[in-house]
Every structure is written in structure tokens, then in C-alpha cells.
Design a protein around this nucleic acid. Structure first.
Lengths: 338, 338
DNA sequence: GCCGTTTGAGAAAACGTTTTCTCAGGTTTA
DNA sequence: TAAACCTGAGAAAACGTTTTCTCAAACGGC
């Protein structure tokens, strides 16, 4: 393992002092053109690259931002993480990833580790608010929340326009003639799920439909949860002709449930899901879905954070909503005559 | 932004010198029990956490490993990355992620950045070998390759048993009675693709079948590439009754191609794909696939790297092969009588 | 030609650790 | 009882930067 050249190597090769070498390379203070040339040349010859650890220690900033999220293997989160990473990289920062899994203790452990590594800030998909750790951390470190939000401690929060998304989906179903519309949503106490369910209720009411609580069923936002919820909603003959599912995982479960009950989509049941994962396009029929701008959400979140780091302020409103897009495919149709 | 306590804060609160505080906390050298107690107490009271940047500089190690990969949004790579991360975290390391996209320059840029940050080692899914940058880097830094490999510069390489995987798939088809079997594989010059195609040829020959070069078609391992390859293979009436596809992306394209030609799976065409992404289970019919142990590959790769970092040696063979698993579903059947 | 001002470069401090060096005080050994 | 040996703690160096301090030389104005 050969060692890499250090700044004092460069300095001595160029025959100048350490400080001059540093100045020549950073181009800040004035330095004699000839000396500067010598330094640059020496640096090049030695393939000098500044040691970021030393630099971080001295400058009290690392140019690293952390992204802590749950479930990088879920396509939505992976895409969002990609957005965070690209934004960071484009601005000369490096992203460090913490994939907490479901648990809160995983989140806390990562937050701690990243604080120890003196990251300049964090983009967090918070997992819950039972422990105020994240909130306390935000007093020491700039935090931007994305996708989910608890409280208002973070510098800024990037959320989906959940209500708007559900509204659009609901209106599409109503326009097709559906009156008995079900909702399958997560039982987890996160803002996304409450906003989506509230949006659902409002959307129905806006069209003079009274939402039946029996048609709104909650379960975990996993495939299994979606399956269970689907069986419950569709199994007893509650007569819903359409259903909206708020997560991609649960959507997969619902599809299985519909099949197991021999309900054909869209003739027997119209379905609108969430997130445009590849499989929704390859299904037979391809599924109408609400697409979240996952990449943009991550990109935006990182940019907001970096703006703050570099200019000390947030440019827009503290919480901003990104629009979802309803992608029409073949899983919705006019309800069966009855 | 309140500042966090530093070691000298702890020392002065405990009324001891800096060095004693350090010794007390690290428990290395002997220190008077009473003083140690005082230090521990002070540290706790001040919520002291050692600054990893300073520690890294002094110790000349960061306890960070980098994972550079292409396409974190692909489920295989995401799962692999998760394995790397978990292994690292379990052993007290932190993972830093570099998602290079397709390009080689992206890879190089990330390798450079991570070297500047003095990561202790890297787990790399190399993108190509046209530039020897990675190879040269391996003289300065421990590198473990995973999934793909170019040359033998890395400390260790974790690969799929590509030939074995294809062999098993081919035998399944042969056992069903197929004699005209096609292969769709990547045009990219990476070892996985050549191993898989060679394995395919050998598997056929082992059963006395002569592989027809017309039945082996290459294209990019993207959905679009799979579609094109599928059209080419199935469009002209070459009479193949079954096809194996070596990547998940291309598999999606092939399915589209088959549909566009109105070939029903599995009656008209048996299909075996790669990677057990969720959508392959939800298809109608659910697809028989070769499942790669993505998580285990990442986990193993990271562990091998960390073993090297901590004990200075690699425990097993330099290149190790992980077994794939053929998951039988409904996309293969006896070929149509003709 | 003298003094005040600019210019540019080296010395040194600082960031927060860990670890080596030194040395005082106490304890054993001959 | 004196010499040799532990034990434990503080001082200081080191990791590789950036930046402040300091000062010598060059320069310009009168």
C-alpha cells in the first residue's frame, strides 16, 4: 500500500513553505506567479490530493451529508435516495447512507453515528416520533425531512401533496361512475397515511358522497397487510366497486387478494395504486397508479439542505408539497351494472 | 447550533489531564479506579461522544467503507447494497455509497472522492475495465469486487455461480422436453454475461444438443434491449420453444415482446428469467426465475473486506462463487406439440 | 533619500484525538 | 537503607490541513 503524497511533500518538492503551497493551491491569498507555478507542477507530479479528513478537522465541516431512510430496497425510497445522492454530488458533497429498516432504534443508532462523523447535515425520512431524538438532534445539526414529517423542528420538509393526489384519483373513479369506493391505507401513525385518508374523505364529500367507515380499512403497508386488508374489504360483500391503495407494497397484496377472490380487474373491481414501480406496468392489466416524484423529492430535499449549509437560509416555504401524477392505465373502468 | 462536548471538556470537568481522560475512556493503559470513575461520570454528564474526524486523522483509519455500484434503483443492486451496509454496521463500520450510474467516468469520480475521504476499503461492482483506474487504486486501498470482476487485482471477488445457475435452468427446460432453447443476454463486455452464455452452451452440449448461434441474441440489459432481443428471437420463426433471459430488466422487455407477438406464456413459450423482483411473482403467469443471493453477496463481500482490514488476510479462496436458486413457478411447461 | 505602505512568504497555531515520552512517587529487593 | 523497579499521570508530539501572525523586502510619495 503505497502512501499518497501530502501537502508538505508538495511544498518541499516545490521548495516553498507549507503555507505557500496551501495558498497556491487554494488560490486565495496572493502568491508569486512563479512560485504558484512551481507548486502546481509539484502537486501534479506527485498526484497530490488533499486529505479530506484533515481538511474536515481543520475547517469544521466535512462536506458530507447523511441520508437516513427506511427500506432502500423499496423502489420509492431507492429512487429518492438516488435524488439525494445526485444533488449532493453535483454540488461537491458526498452522501452517506443509513438504511434503518423499520425500527426506531435503528434510526437512532444511525443518527448518532452520523453525528459522530460530523456530517454537515441530514436528509431524513423519519420513522416515528415516539422518541424525540431527532428533534433534539436538530438543535445541533441542520435536518431536512422528506416524505414524512413529525413536528416542525426540521429546517424544511419536502412532502407529497397527499391530499391532492388522492383527490385526483378519487375524482377519476367518481367520473367513471363509481359510488362505492374503498381505501386501503397504512395503520402506521405517520402523516402520509393520515393525510391520504383525510384527503379521501374530503374528496368524496366534495362530490356529495358519504364515506362509509367500513370501506376504509387499515393495515400495515406491507404486501401481507395489503392482502389482509383486501380480503377484509372485498371478502364480505360490502359491494365496493373500486379501491385506492396508498402504498406500493399493499397494492401488491391487494392484487393477490382480488385474484384469490376471483375478482377480475377492472371488470369486477377498479384499482388505483401508488408508486409506479415496474411491476405495475407489466401486470395484466397494467395498473393505474399515482406516481410520486420520488427522485425530485430527494433532489429537492438535498438542495434545500445544501442551500442552507452554504447560504445559511431556506429559500422557499418551510414545508413544500410536490405534486403527484395520476398515470392512467387499464385497471379502472366503468362499474359493472348491477 | 449548540456545540458538543469535546474530550478536553471532559478532562477539565473531571479535573484530570487530557491523556488521562483518553486512557480512562479507551480503557487501554492503567488508570486509577477513582479517576476513571470521575472521567466516566463527566463524559456521561456532558454527553461526550468522540469526534470521529479527529480520531480518524490521528489513527489513520476512518472505519468507513465505500460501496460503489451501478444503479441502486435496480432491485438486485439495492439488495446487495443493503447486505454490504448491514455487514459493515454490524461490525462498527459505516458505509458510504456511490451510485455511479452506467458511466465509467462516474465510477472514477466516485473512487477518487472516496479515496480522498480516506475510506478504509471498498466493495465495488466494477463497471468495466477499459480504464485501469480501479486496478491502480487497488495498490493503495483494499478492494473487494462483487457481482462482476475484471482481472485479479482485487483482494477478493464474490461472484454468482453463473454457469451453475444457467445449467440448472437449462436442465429444467430440457427435462420438460424443450430442444430449441434461446438465450437473451447482455451485450456489455462483463464477465457475468460471458459466463452465462458459455454456461448455456455447455449445458446444452451436456445433453447432446447443439446450440444454434441464431438462438443466442445479445442486446443491452435494459428493458428496451430485452424487448428488441425478444422481437428478434421470436419474431422470425426460428421456432424456439423456450428462452432464458439473463437480467431482470431484459426479462421485462422480453415479456412485452412475447405479448406483442401474441405468444402466450407458457403454452407458446416457456420463460426463465433472472432475479426474483416482486413483479415476477405478480405476473400472470408468475415467472420461473433464477434467484441470485443478492443480500448474501453484499454481506459476504463486506465481511471479506472487513476481515482483511482487521486481520490482514483473506480467509477463503480469492474468488468465491455463490449458488443461485431456481424458483419454479408457472412460466415453463411442456412444449406445444407441433 | 526617508518614511509609510503594500506585497508576499515563512512560522506557528488550531481543529480533537491517540500515543509516546518523561518523570514523580511509591514499592520491592538485595 | 540504598538501589532498582513499578505505577500512573501529565506534557508533548503527531495526524494533514487552513489561516492567522509576523516580518522582511519592495515600492511609492514627498
Amino acid at each position: 500500500m503505497r502512501n499518497i503524497a501530502t501537502l508538505s511533500d508538495v511544498a518541499s518538492r516545490a521548495g516553498v513553505s507549507l503555507s505557500t503551497a496551501s495558498r497556491a493551491l487554494n488560490g486565495l491569498s496572493t502568491v508569486d506567479p512563479e512560485l504558484r507555478e512551481r507548486v502546481l507542477e509539484a502537486a501534479k507530479a506527485l498526484r497530490y490530493r488533499p486529505n479530506q479528513v484533515a481538511r474536515s478537522l481543520r475547517e469544521q465541516r466535512t462536506r458530507i451529508i447523511a441520508h437516513v431512510t427506511a427500506g432502500i430496497t423499496a423502489s420509492f425510497h431507492a429512487t429518492l435516495a438516488q435524488g439525494v445522492q445526485d444533488a449532493a454530488f453535483n454540488r461537491g458533497y458526498t452522501m452517506i447512507l443509513g438504511n434503518t429498516g423499520i425500527g426506531l432504534d435503528g434510526e437512532i443508532r444511525y443518527l448518532q453515528v452520523f453525528e459522530d462523523y460530523k456530517v454537515d447535515g441530514m436528509v431524513v425520512v423519519p420513522v416515528s416520533n415516539v422518541d424525540p431524538y431527532l428533534e433534539r438532534l436538530s438543535e445541533r445539526l441542520p435536518i431536512v425531512e422528506v416524505d414524512r414529517s413529525f413536528g416542525s423542528y426540521s429546517k424544511s420538509t419536502i412532502l407529497l401533496d397527499n391530499a391532492g393526489a388522492i383527490l385526483e384519483a378519487t375524482e377519476h373513479l367518481v367520473a367513471l361512475g363509481h359510488r362505492r369506493i374503498g381505501l386501503i391505507y397504512g395503520i402506521e401513525p405517520v402523516n402520509t397515511e393520515v393525510e391520504r385518508s383525510e384527503g379521501f374523505v374530503k374528496a368524496l364529500q366534495a362530490h356529495g358522497l358519504e364515506p362509509d367507515p367500513d370501506w376504509m380499512v387499515r393495515d400495515h403497508y406491507t404486501e401481507e397487510g395489503g392482502f389482509r386488508a383486501g380480503r377484509r374489504l372485498l371478502g364480505s360483500s360490502r359491494g365496493v366497486t373500486a379501491v385506492i391503495v396508498t402504498t406500493n407494497e399493499a397494492l401488491a397484496g391487494l392484487v393477490r387478494a382480488a385474484r384469490s377472490l376471483e375478482l377480475t380487474i377492472p371488470t369486477d373491481l377498479s384499482v388505483i395504486g401508488m408508486d409506479d414501480a415496474r411491476w405495475t406496468q407489466l401486470m395484466e392489466p397494467p395498473l393505474t397508479v399515482i406516481e410520486q416524484p420520488a427522485y425530485d423529492m430527494g433532489y429537492e430535499a438535498a438542495n434545500v439542505l445544501l442551500d442552507y449549509l452554504e447560504h445559511g437560509r431556506i429559500r422557499g416555504p418551510r414545508v413544500r408539497r410536490m405534486p403527484a401524477k395520476l398515470i392512467l392505465r387499464k385497471s379502472t373502468a366503468v362499474p359493472k351494472a348491477r
